[in-house]
Amino acid sequence: MRRGHFRLPLVTLRFLPVWRRNFLVWKKLAIPSVLGNLADPMLYLFGLGYGLGSLLHKVGGGSYIVFLAGGMICYSTLNSATFETLYSGFSRMHVQRTWDAILNAPMALDDIVLGELVWSAAKSLLSGFAILLVIWVFHLDRSWPMSVLVIPAVMLIGLCFSAMGLVVTALSPSYDFFMYYFTLAVTPMVLLSGVFYPVAQLPPLFQHLAALLPLTHAVFLVRPLLMGQWPAQAVLHAGVLASYAVVSYYVAVVLFRRRLLQ
Protein backbone atom coordinates (compact mmCIF):
# COMPACT_ATOMS: atom_id res chain seq x y z
CA MET A 1 0.00 0.00 0.00
CA ARG A 2 1.41 3.38 -1.01
CA ARG A 3 1.21 6.49 1.08
CA GLY A 4 -0.73 8.20 -1.73
CA HIS A 5 -3.55 5.69 -1.28
CA PHE A 6 -4.40 7.24 2.09
CA ARG A 7 -5.08 10.76 0.86
CA LEU A 8 -8.61 12.00 1.40
CA PRO A 9 -11.12 11.10 -1.34
CA LEU A 10 -11.66 13.71 -4.04
CA VAL A 11 -15.26 14.82 -3.98
CA THR A 12 -16.27 16.51 -7.24
CA LEU A 13 -19.27 16.53 -9.57
CA ARG A 14 -17.32 14.32 -11.96
CA PHE A 15 -19.11 11.40 -10.32
CA LEU A 16 -22.25 12.37 -12.27
CA PRO A 17 -21.48 10.49 -15.54
CA VAL A 18 -20.91 7.32 -13.51
CA TRP A 19 -24.21 7.84 -11.72
CA ARG A 20 -25.97 8.45 -15.04
CA ARG A 21 -24.47 5.31 -16.54
CA ASN A 22 -25.95 3.19 -13.76
CA PHE A 23 -29.23 5.06 -13.99
CA LEU A 24 -29.47 4.34 -17.73
CA VAL A 25 -29.00 0.63 -17.09
CA TRP A 26 -31.57 0.70 -14.29
CA LYS A 27 -34.10 2.52 -16.51
CA LYS A 28 -34.11 -0.41 -18.90
CA LEU A 29 -35.21 -2.74 -16.12
CA ALA A 30 -37.04 -0.26 -13.93
CA ILE A 31 -40.36 -2.08 -13.57
CA PRO A 32 -39.05 -5.49 -12.48
CA SER A 33 -36.50 -3.69 -10.32
CA VAL A 34 -39.13 -1.66 -8.44
CA LEU A 35 -41.36 -4.72 -8.09
CA GLY A 36 -38.39 -6.57 -6.65
CA ASN A 37 -37.75 -3.71 -4.24
CA LEU A 38 -41.34 -3.91 -3.06
CA ALA A 39 -42.15 -7.61 -3.09
CA ASP A 40 -39.73 -8.93 -0.50
CA PRO A 41 -40.24 -6.35 2.26
CA MET A 42 -44.01 -6.29 1.62
CA LEU A 43 -44.22 -10.03 2.09
CA TYR A 44 -42.46 -9.65 5.42
CA LEU A 45 -44.51 -6.62 6.38
CA PHE A 46 -47.92 -8.13 5.72
CA GLY A 47 -47.01 -11.76 6.37
CA LEU A 48 -45.37 -11.14 9.72
CA GLY A 49 -47.36 -8.00 10.44
CA TYR A 50 -50.78 -9.59 10.22
CA GLY A 51 -49.84 -13.23 10.76
CA LEU A 52 -47.56 -12.85 13.75
CA GLY A 53 -49.22 -9.59 14.73
CA SER A 54 -52.55 -11.31 15.37
CA LEU A 55 -50.88 -13.39 18.10
CA LEU A 56 -49.33 -10.38 19.80
CA HIS A 57 -50.69 -7.71 22.05
CA LYS A 58 -49.44 -4.21 21.63
CA VAL A 59 -45.82 -3.91 20.58
CA GLY A 60 -44.10 -0.62 21.24
CA GLY A 61 -47.39 1.00 22.12
CA GLY A 62 -49.28 0.06 18.94
CA SER A 63 -50.22 -2.86 16.71
CA TYR A 64 -47.39 -5.11 15.60
CA ILE A 65 -47.68 -4.19 11.92
CA VAL A 66 -47.22 -0.50 12.72
CA PHE A 67 -44.19 -1.44 14.81
CA LEU A 68 -42.84 -3.60 12.03
CA ALA A 69 -43.36 -0.94 9.33
CA GLY A 70 -40.51 1.22 10.61
CA GLY A 71 -38.18 -1.76 10.79
CA MET A 72 -39.11 -2.81 7.27
CA ILE A 73 -38.18 0.57 5.81
CA CYS A 74 -34.71 0.26 7.34
CA TYR A 75 -34.37 -3.39 6.37
CA SER A 76 -35.40 -2.70 2.79
CA THR A 77 -32.96 0.20 2.49
CA LEU A 78 -30.17 -1.91 3.94
CA ASN A 79 -30.91 -4.77 1.57
CA SER A 80 -31.05 -2.63 -1.52
CA ALA A 81 -27.82 -0.78 -0.67
CA THR A 82 -26.02 -4.02 0.11
CA PHE A 83 -27.07 -5.90 -3.01
CA GLU A 84 -26.30 -2.94 -5.26
CA THR A 85 -22.79 -2.32 -3.94
CA LEU A 86 -21.90 -5.98 -3.57
CA TYR A 87 -23.28 -7.86 -6.56
CA SER A 88 -23.88 -5.08 -9.08
CA GLY A 89 -20.83 -3.09 -8.03
CA PHE A 90 -18.58 -6.14 -8.20
CA SER A 91 -19.93 -7.00 -11.66
CA ARG A 92 -19.10 -3.54 -12.93
CA MET A 93 -15.67 -3.43 -11.32
CA HIS A 94 -14.42 -6.97 -11.75
CA VAL A 95 -16.50 -8.92 -14.26
CA GLN A 96 -17.50 -6.38 -16.91
CA ARG A 97 -14.41 -4.22 -16.35
CA THR A 98 -16.58 -1.14 -16.68
CA TRP A 99 -14.42 0.70 -14.17
CA ASP A 100 -11.27 -0.04 -16.20
CA ALA A 101 -12.91 1.53 -19.25
CA ILE A 102 -13.90 4.61 -17.24
CA LEU A 103 -10.37 4.95 -15.83
CA ASN A 104 -9.01 5.30 -19.36
CA ALA A 105 -11.09 8.46 -19.71
CA PRO A 106 -10.19 11.61 -17.76
CA MET A 107 -11.84 10.22 -14.63
CA ALA A 108 -10.29 9.37 -11.29
CA LEU A 109 -11.02 6.23 -9.31
CA ASP A 110 -12.41 8.52 -6.59
CA ASP A 111 -15.03 9.76 -9.09
CA ILE A 112 -16.12 6.20 -9.80
CA VAL A 113 -16.38 5.22 -6.13
CA LEU A 114 -18.36 8.37 -5.31
CA GLY A 115 -20.62 7.71 -8.33
CA GLU A 116 -21.26 4.17 -7.11
CA LEU A 117 -21.92 5.36 -3.56
CA VAL A 118 -24.40 8.03 -4.56
CA TRP A 119 -26.05 5.72 -7.09
CA SER A 120 -26.50 2.93 -4.58
CA ALA A 121 -27.81 5.39 -1.99
CA ALA A 122 -30.31 6.71 -4.54
CA LYS A 123 -31.46 3.23 -5.42
CA SER A 124 -31.89 2.27 -1.79
CA LEU A 125 -33.75 5.53 -1.16
CA LEU A 126 -36.21 4.34 -3.77
CA SER A 127 -36.57 1.01 -1.98
CA GLY A 128 -37.17 2.67 1.38
CA PHE A 129 -39.52 5.17 -0.19
CA ALA A 130 -41.51 2.40 -1.88
CA ILE A 131 -42.22 0.88 1.55
CA LEU A 132 -43.12 4.31 2.88
CA LEU A 133 -45.68 4.64 0.08
CA VAL A 134 -47.21 1.31 1.06
CA ILE A 135 -47.31 2.47 4.66
CA TRP A 136 -49.09 5.64 3.63
CA VAL A 137 -51.55 3.78 1.42
CA PHE A 138 -52.44 1.34 4.21
CA HIS A 139 -52.36 4.04 6.92
CA LEU A 140 -49.75 2.18 8.91
CA ASP A 141 -48.22 5.46 10.08
CA ARG A 142 -49.59 7.63 12.83
CA SER A 143 -48.63 11.07 11.54
CA TRP A 144 -48.42 12.10 7.93
CA PRO A 145 -46.28 15.24 8.20
CA MET A 146 -43.86 13.62 10.63
CA SER A 147 -43.49 10.51 8.49
CA VAL A 148 -42.26 12.65 5.55
CA LEU A 149 -39.09 13.11 7.59
CA VAL A 150 -38.45 9.40 7.07
CA ILE A 151 -37.23 10.33 3.57
CA PRO A 152 -34.07 12.20 4.64
CA ALA A 153 -33.46 9.50 7.25
CA VAL A 154 -33.61 6.84 4.54
CA MET A 155 -31.11 8.84 2.47
CA LEU A 156 -28.65 8.74 5.33
CA ILE A 157 -29.31 5.03 5.95
CA GLY A 158 -28.76 4.29 2.26
CA LEU A 159 -25.47 6.19 2.21
CA CYS A 160 -24.33 4.36 5.34
CA PHE A 161 -25.00 0.82 4.11
CA SER A 162 -23.82 1.60 0.57
CA ALA A 163 -20.48 2.80 1.92
CA MET A 164 -20.21 -0.32 4.09
CA GLY A 165 -21.04 -2.51 1.09
CA LEU A 166 -18.32 -0.84 -0.97
CA VAL A 167 -15.75 -1.85 1.63
CA VAL A 168 -16.78 -5.48 1.21
CA THR A 169 -16.69 -5.21 -2.59
CA ALA A 170 -13.21 -3.66 -2.47
CA LEU A 171 -11.97 -6.68 -0.50
CA SER A 172 -13.82 -9.37 -2.39
CA PRO A 173 -11.98 -11.84 -4.62
CA SER A 174 -15.25 -13.29 -5.99
CA TYR A 175 -19.02 -13.35 -5.53
CA ASP A 176 -18.71 -16.18 -3.00
CA PHE A 177 -16.99 -13.86 -0.55
CA PHE A 178 -20.25 -11.91 -0.10
CA MET A 179 -21.77 -14.83 1.76
CA TYR A 180 -19.46 -14.06 4.70
CA TYR A 181 -20.78 -10.52 4.88
CA PHE A 182 -24.39 -11.68 4.81
CA THR A 183 -23.93 -14.50 7.31
CA LEU A 184 -21.54 -12.78 9.67
CA ALA A 185 -22.72 -9.17 9.46
CA VAL A 186 -26.04 -8.47 7.75
CA THR A 187 -28.22 -11.26 9.17
CA PRO A 188 -27.06 -10.98 12.80
CA MET A 189 -27.41 -7.20 12.55
CA VAL A 190 -30.99 -7.49 11.27
CA LEU A 191 -31.86 -9.79 14.17
CA LEU A 192 -30.18 -7.60 16.80
CA SER A 193 -31.23 -4.16 15.65
CA GLY A 194 -34.89 -4.08 16.54
CA VAL A 195 -36.30 -4.62 13.07
CA PHE A 196 -38.70 -7.41 14.12
CA TYR A 197 -38.90 -6.91 17.89
CA PRO A 198 -37.81 -4.21 20.33
CA VAL A 199 -34.13 -4.20 21.23
CA ALA A 200 -35.28 -3.99 24.87
CA GLN A 201 -36.38 -7.64 24.60
CA LEU A 202 -32.76 -8.73 24.18
CA PRO A 203 -30.47 -9.81 27.06
CA PRO A 204 -28.41 -6.82 28.29
CA LEU A 205 -25.20 -8.01 26.61
CA PHE A 206 -26.91 -8.10 23.22
CA GLN A 207 -28.48 -4.72 23.87
CA HIS A 208 -25.00 -3.26 24.31
CA LEU A 209 -23.90 -4.97 21.14
CA ALA A 210 -26.95 -3.67 19.29
CA ALA A 211 -26.08 -0.12 20.31
CA LEU A 212 -22.92 -0.39 18.23
CA LEU A 213 -24.74 -1.42 15.07
CA PRO A 214 -25.80 1.21 12.53
CA LEU A 215 -29.09 -0.54 11.77
CA THR A 216 -30.17 -0.11 15.42
CA HIS A 217 -29.75 3.63 15.08
CA ALA A 218 -31.56 3.61 11.74
CA VAL A 219 -34.55 1.90 13.37
CA PHE A 220 -34.48 4.27 16.37
CA LEU A 221 -34.68 7.14 13.90
CA VAL A 222 -37.38 5.87 11.54
CA ARG A 223 -39.83 4.09 13.85
CA PRO A 224 -40.72 7.10 16.05
CA LEU A 225 -41.17 9.31 12.97
CA LEU A 226 -43.82 6.89 11.67
CA MET A 227 -45.46 6.94 15.11
CA GLY A 228 -45.60 10.72 14.95
CA GLN A 229 -42.89 11.32 17.56
CA TRP A 230 -39.62 13.14 17.29
CA PRO A 231 -36.96 10.45 17.88
CA ALA A 232 -35.19 10.56 21.23
CA GLN A 233 -31.50 11.35 20.70
CA ALA A 234 -32.10 11.96 16.99
CA VAL A 235 -28.74 13.71 16.64
CA LEU A 236 -26.90 10.78 18.19
CA HIS A 237 -28.57 8.25 15.87
CA ALA A 238 -27.99 10.37 12.78
CA GLY A 239 -24.42 10.99 13.91
CA VAL A 240 -23.70 7.26 14.29
CA LEU A 241 -25.10 6.58 10.79
CA ALA A 242 -23.12 9.47 9.31
CA SER A 243 -19.93 8.30 11.03
CA TYR A 244 -20.34 4.77 9.69
CA ALA A 245 -20.94 6.28 6.24
CA VAL A 246 -17.93 8.59 6.26
CA VAL A 247 -15.46 6.12 7.75
CA SER A 248 -16.61 3.27 5.47
CA TYR A 249 -16.47 5.52 2.42
CA TYR A 250 -12.90 6.54 3.24
CA VAL A 251 -11.84 2.94 3.91
CA ALA A 252 -13.51 1.79 0.67
CA VAL A 253 -11.70 4.45 -1.40
CA VAL A 254 -8.34 3.47 0.11
CA LEU A 255 -9.01 -0.23 -0.51
CA PHE A 256 -10.14 0.35 -4.09
CA ARG A 257 -6.99 2.40 -4.74
CA ARG A 258 -4.87 -0.43 -3.39
CA ARG A 259 -6.77 -2.93 -5.51
CA LEU A 260 -6.97 -1.06 -8.82
CA LEU A 261 -4.14 1.48 -8.94
CA GLN A 262 -1.21 -0.86 -8.23
Partner: peptide, 10 residues
Protein backbone atom coordinates in the same frame (compact mmCIF):
# COMPACT_ATOMS: atom_id res chain seq x y z
CA UNK B 1 -7.62 -2.05 -24.03
CA UNK B 2 -6.46 -5.60 -24.52
CA UNK B 3 -9.66 -7.09 -23.14
CA UNK B 4 -12.99 -5.85 -24.41
CA UNK B 5 -14.76 -3.84 -21.75
CA UNK B 6 -17.70 -2.54 -23.72
CA UNK B 7 -20.79 -2.08 -21.62
CA UNK B 8 -22.89 -5.24 -22.11
CA UNK B 9 -26.04 -3.52 -20.85
CA UNK B 10 -26.01 -1.00 -23.68
Amino acid sequence: PQMDNLDPDF
